[in-house]
Computed example of a mutant assay.
Amino acid sequence: MTRATLPSRLLALLPETPPACACAQLLNLLRHRLWPDEDFSWLAGRSLRLALLDTGYGVTLRFDGRRFGPGRGQGDVGFAAAAADYWAMALRREDPDTLFFQRRLRIEGDTELGLQLKNLLDATDWSYALARLPAPLQHLLRHPPWAGGTR
Results as ranks from 00 to 15, higher is better:
residue 12 A to T: 08
residue 12 A to P: 08
residue 12 A to F: 09
residue 13 L to S: 08
residue 14 L to H: 07
residue 14 L to G: 13
residue 16 E to Y: 02
residue 16 E to R: 13
residue 18 P to F: 13
residue 18 P to S: 13
residue 18 P to W: 13
residue 19 P to H: 09
residue 20 A to M: 06
residue 21 C to L: 15
residue 21 C to G: 11
residue 21 C to I: 15
residue 22 A to I: 14
residue 22 A to E: 06
residue 24 A to Y: 04
residue 24 A to S: 12
residue 24 A to E: 02
residue 25 Q to G: 12
residue 26 L to M: 11
residue 26 L to I: 05
residue 28 N to I: 07
residue 30 L to H: 06
residue 31 R to P: 02
residue 33 R to C: 09
residue 33 R to K: 06
residue 34 L to D: 00
residue 34 L to C: 01
residue 35 W to L: 13
residue 36 P to W: 10
residue 37 D to Q: 15
residue 39 D to T: 14
residue 40 F to M: 10
residue 41 S to G: 15
residue 42 W to K: 07
residue 42 W to G: 10
residue 43 L to P: 14
residue 43 L to F: 12
residue 44 A to G: 11
residue 45 G to S: 07
residue 45 G to L: 05
residue 45 G to I: 05
residue 45 G to T: 09
residue 46 R to K: 13
residue 47 S to C: 09
residue 48 L to I: 04
residue 49 R to C: 10
residue 49 R to N: 12
residue 51 A to G: 06
residue 52 L to K: 10
residue 56 G to P: 08
residue 58 G to Q: 01
residue 62 R to D: 14
residue 62 R to Q: 14
residue 64 D to I: 01
residue 65 G to N: 11
residue 65 G to M: 10
residue 66 R to P: 00
residue 70 P to F: 03
residue 71 G to C: 10
residue 72 R to C: 08
residue 76 D to H: 04
residue 76 D to K: 02
residue 78 G to W: 04
residue 78 G to A: 14
residue 80 A to T: 11
residue 80 A to F: 08
residue 80 A to C: 10
residue 80 A to Q: 04
residue 81 A to I: 03
residue 81 A to H: 00
residue 81 A to L: 03
residue 82 A to D: 03
residue 82 A to P: 01
residue 84 A to T: 06
residue 86 Y to H: 11
residue 86 Y to V: 07
residue 88 A to L: 03
residue 88 A to E: 00
residue 90 A to V: 13
residue 90 A to N: 06
residue 90 A to G: 13
residue 91 L to Q: 02
residue 92 R to A: 14
residue 93 R to K: 04
residue 93 R to G: 03
residue 94 E to I: 05
residue 95 D to K: 01
residue 95 D to E: 13
residue 95 D to S: 11
residue 96 P to R: 01
residue 97 D to Y: 02
residue 99 L to M: 05
residue 99 L to W: 01
residue 99 L to E: 01
residue 100 F to K: 06
residue 102 Q to I: 00
residue 102 Q to A: 11
residue 102 Q to Y: 06
residue 103 R to Q: 13
residue 105 L to E: 08
residue 105 L to F: 07
residue 106 R to G: 00
residue 107 I to M: 02
residue 108 E to G: 02
residue 110 D to H: 11
residue 110 D to P: 05
residue 110 D to R: 06
residue 110 D to E: 14
residue 110 D to I: 12
residue 111 T to E: 07
residue 112 E to V: 15
residue 113 L to S: 03
residue 113 L to Q: 05
residue 115 L to G: 15
residue 115 L to N: 15
residue 115 L to H: 15
residue 117 L to T: 09
residue 118 K to S: 13
residue 118 K to W: 12
residue 120 L to H: 04
residue 120 L to T: 08
residue 122 D to H: 15
residue 122 D to T: 15
residue 122 D to C: 12
residue 123 A to D: 15
residue 123 A to R: 13
residue 124 T to K: 02
residue 124 T to F: 02
residue 124 T to P: 04
residue 125 D to Y: 00
residue 126 W to T: 00
residue 130 L to S: 06
residue 131 A to N: 07
residue 131 A to L: 05
residue 132 R to T: 04
residue 134 P to Y: 05
residue 136 P to S: 01
residue 137 L to P: 01
residue 138 Q to M: 05
residue 141 L to V: 03
residue 142 R to Q: 09
residue 142 R to A: 07
residue 143 H to K: 09
residue 145 P to Q: 08
residue 145 P to K: 10
residue 145 P to N: 04
residue 145 P to D: 11
